[in-house]
């Protein structure tokens, strides 16, 4: 589903963010990308979304070399990747329902599909009673669930989460991870960048660890993750 071949990223001013990374994430896998701040996790995620270009190497998403993707195709790449962020990135002047519906409007889905899918996915994340609330009226955990609903509503094959529990307390974090695991079980490939030890230890999934831009550990499923 996601494959990196000898990918390096050097930012202007010769800051090396990633050095010669090669890895392969299969369909329906659940993977943690761990490492301390500045280890290159965010660069990794940004390159998958083509927000950043690798300096060297090739990245494949869903079998396609995204380096070859013309600029105007980038929005279509992003429709295959649901995104969840530490700071939620919800639209502050839209309600919960509208925030989720937005992801479908943007890709031109007709109204009847929007009206049918949006309440369903909001129910899945357990926010039916907050359908018409504004983001600022919600707790952090609720906002993150809206964000996940938005990421999943157009049923992308891949879900990327950048520090999804970074702003949440431990028990809320556990709820969010349960939700993500359930999505994974329903067939979505999930990649979570995090430095939350507790979350990684609890889940016991495949762990890829970055340190100073290098891949230093890749423990496949079945090996108990110890955290980054």
């Amino acid at each position: 589903m996601i494959r990196l071949e000898n990918v390096s990223k050097v930012y202007k001013g010769s800051v090396v963010a990633l050095r010669d990374i090669s890895t392969d994430i299969q369909k329906e896998e659940f993977v943690f990308l761990v490492g301390s701040s500045g280890s290159g996790k965010s660069t990794f995620i940004k390159m998958l979304l083509k927000e950043e270009e690798p300096s060297e190497g090739t990245i494949f998403v869903a079998g396609k070399d995204i380096g070859q993707l013309p600029r105007w195709r980038v929005p279509y790449l992003r429709r295959n990747i649901g995104c969840v962020f530490q700071d939620f990135k919800l639209l502050a002047n839209k309600t919960v329902r509208e925030n989720v519906a937005f992801a479908l409007e943007v890709i031109g889905r007709p109204k009847n599909i929007i009206n049918q899918r949006v309440p369903a996915i909001i129910e899945l994340v357990g926010l039916t009673d907050k359908l018409n609330s504004m983001p600022h009226e919600l707790s952090g955990g609720e906002q993150q669930r809206v964000c996940i609903a938005r990421a999943m509503v157009n049923r992308p094959p891949i879900l990327l989460a950048d520090e999804p529990t970074g702003n949440l307390d431990p028990s809320t974090s556990a709820d969010i991870m349960n939700l993500l695991e359930r999505l994974n079980e329903s067939g979505t490939t999930v990649l979570i960048a995090t430095h939350d030890h507790a979350v990684v230890d609890r889940s016991r999934k495949r762990v890829i660890e970055l340190d100073g831009g290098k891949l230093v550990r890749d423990q496949v499923r079945g090996v108990y993750g110890i955290g980054g």
Binding site: W72, P75, R78, R79, K89, N93, V106, I107, R150
Partner: peptide, 16 residues
């Protein structure tokens, strides 16, 4: 600008 960034991330085309 934040709104525009989010639109980009969920896959909106520039014209949209």
């Amino acid at each position: 600008r934040k709104e525009i960034g989010i639109m980009k991330l969920v896959g909106a085309t520039n014209w949209f």
